[in-house]
C-alpha cells in the first residue's frame, strides 16, 4: 500500500494521484492474475470431471456427480464477503496470515474455481456429444477424448467464460481490499468513499472501467480469432485460398 497521508491533508493533491492509483492497479492485477492462474489450473480439470460424471459424460456416476456438483454450488452460492470471512482459519492455515495479497488470493481462488468449474461444464455441454463418439470410435483414450473432442472444441466458449470470470475477480478483489489486500477497489473505498475525495473516486472509476473494457476487448478478440467460422466469416461461401496442410492443432 502506498502513501500514508498526513492527517490534516484530507484530499489527495493531483500530482499524488498517479503514485496512489497506479501501484493499487498493479496490486489488483497481481491478485487477479495469480488467482486466475490457479482458477484455470484447477477449474478446467474439475469442470471436465463434473461434466463427464454427468449423464451425458464419458463416465456417468450419479453419486459422484451430485456430490461434486453440490460442493461447487455451495462455493457459488455464498456471497464473496461471507465466504472470505468464513474461511479465514483455512486462509491462515495455508498462507500463515489473514491480511494482504496472499490472504486475498485464497478466498478469491475458491470463489473463482467454483465459478469457472460451472463455466467449463457449461462450455463442454455446448460441444456436440457426437464428437466424443467420433473420438472413441477413432481409438481415443478417455484423456484424449476430453482433450481433443471436448476442451479443444470448446476453446472459444472457454475463453469467453474466462473473460467473464476475470472481470468478476476484479470485483472480488475490491472486496478483498477490505482485509488489507490493497488494490484499486480499496483506494476507491478509503479515499473516494470514506474521505469524500471525488477526484480519487472518479479516477478509480475511470481506471476500473478502462481495465474491464480492455480485458473484455482482448477476450472478444481472442474468441474471434479462435473461432474458424468467425475468423473467415467475410470469405465464407467463396473459394478459400489454398493453404498448406496444417495438421498441428
Amino acid at each position: 500500500m502506498s502513501a500514508v497521508l498526513p492527517h490534516q491533508q484530507v484530499l489527495v493533491p493531483l500530482d499524488q494521484l498517479a503514485p496512489l492509483v497506479l501501484p493499487a492497479l498493479g496490486d489488483t492485477l497481481i491478485m487477479v492474475g495469480i488467482t486466475m492462474a490457479i482458477v484455470v489450473v484447477v477449474g478446467v480439470p474439475l469442470g471436465a470431471l463434473v461434466h463427464n460424471l454427468g449423464p451425458s459424460g464419458l463416465f456417468p456416476h450419479r453419486t459422484a456427480h451430485t456430490t461434486l456438483s453440490w460442493i461447487v454450488s455451495v462455493g457459488r452460492s455464498l456471497p464473496f464477503l461471507v465466504l472470505m470471512a468464513a474461511i479465514i482459519p483455512f486462509t491462515r492455515l495455508i498462507t500463515g496470515t489473514n491480511i494482504g495479497i496472499p490472504a486475498a488470493i485464497v478466498p478469491m481462488s475458491i470463489a473463482g474455481i467454483a465459478f469457472f468449474t460451472r463455466i467449463v461444464e457449461n462450455s463442454l455441454r455446448g460441444v456436440p456429444p457426437e464428437y466424443a463418439r467420433v473420438a472413441l470410435a477413432s481409438g481415443a483414450s478417455p484423456v484424449q477424448v476430453i482433450r481433443t473432442a471436448q476442451l479443444s472444441e470448446a476453446i472459444p466458449s472457454l475463453v469467453g467464460g474466462l473473460t467473464i470470470n476475470t472481470i468478476a475477480m476484479i470485483e472480488y478483489s475490491a472486496i478483498a481490499g477490505t482485509i488489507g489486500a490493497g488494490g484499486i477497489g480499496y483506494v476507491a473505498v478509503t479515499y473516494g468513499y470514506q474521505r469524500f475525495d471525488h477526484v480519487v473516486m472518479i479516477t478509480t472509476i475511470v481506471v476500473l472501467i478502462a481495465t474491464v473494457a480492455l480485458i473484455q476487448w482482448a477476450g472478444d478478440a481472442a474468441v474471434r480469432r479462435l473461432t474458424p467460422t468467425a475468423r473467415r466469416a467475410g470469405r465464407a461461401g467463396r473459394a478459400v485460398p489454398r493453404q498448406p496442410v496444417d495438421v498441428a492443432v
Binding site: 464428437y131 479462435l226 496444417d246
Partner: peptide, 9 residues
C-alpha cells in the same frame, strides 16, 4: 461428425 475447429487435414 467433423470437429468444427479443425481443418479437413
Amino acid at each position: 461428425g467433423l470437429f468444427a475447429r479443425r481443418t479437413a487435414a
